[in-house]
């Protein structure tokens, strides 16, 4: 596994797969490493943040080949239905970028089966893979400083849902009422990596 230093207190590991990143996180947690601060799995990577004055980076890197020899159990997955009102502020821009008409953008976005690849950016924000390749659009050149909560958006190969009003760099297709994160709930996040999601257009 390739690793890249991220400043003086973090390391980025190429996992080439979202579920491998999740498994690698579980594996590293089990080692009870001194000075480990945070493990952030993503689409192709796992970010390891540590206290540079406590963490033994050399020994840590030696652990990685052992992980690659381990068998990874399949985690139980759940299916979720998410109702969406397709009235987002970037719908027209997506129509322009893709050359599809509006009905077709909505139809293609809501007929796919998405898998939760990882959570991040904001609490409970799911990065969903399985987007129709015809809907692949870039992120906004200048991110919006604030959007309303429940925004269902696309960027690159992902679809996602903004759990609350935050800055946003993705193209917004519509909005949902689903509560994605509640710190008083156990687990706090509605979606878990590996779960599947369907978007249902609502009137």
């Amino acid at each position: 596994m390739n690793t890249h230093p991220v400043g003086d207190s973090a390391l980025l590991i190429d996992t080439h797969d979202a579920m491998v990143a999740q498994h690698l996180r579980t594996y590293i947690l089990r080692q009870s490493l001194k000075g480990l601060r945070e493990l952030v799995p993503a689409h192709n990577t796992l970010l390891v943040e540590y206290d540079a004055l406590l963490f033994d980076l050399t020994s840590f890197i030696r652990l990685l080949p052992k992980f690659e020899q381990l068998k990874r159990p399949a985690a139980p997955a759940r299916a979720h239905d998410v109702p969406v009102t397709y009235d987002g502020e970037d719908l027209k821009e997506v129509v322009r970028l893709t050359g599809l008409d509006m009905a077709e953008v909505i139809q293609r976005h809501s007929s796919a089966t998405y898998t939760v690849a990882f959570l991040g950016f904001a609490p409970g924000f799911p990065y969903l893979i399985g987007l129709d390749p015809k809907l692949r659009v870039p992120r906004l050149k200048t991110p919006r400083t604030k959007i309303a909560s429940g925004a269902v958006a696309i960027a690159d190969e992902f679809s996602g849902i903004y759990p609350r009003a935050t800055p946003a760099g993705w193209c917004i297709l519509g909005y949902t009422d689903v509560v994605l994160f509640d710190p008083d709930r156990e687990p706090p996040a509605l979606l878990t990596p590996g779960d599947t999601v369907h978007f249902r257009p609502s009137a």
Partner: peptide, 27 residues
Amino acid sequence: SQGMVTGAVQIPGDGQPIVLLSNHGTI
């Protein structure tokens, strides 16, 4: 999309840097 650290100097499409502070998004 990937994990981000405080202090990351990000370069968006417009070329003007954004340096992440303590309350940055995780990804």
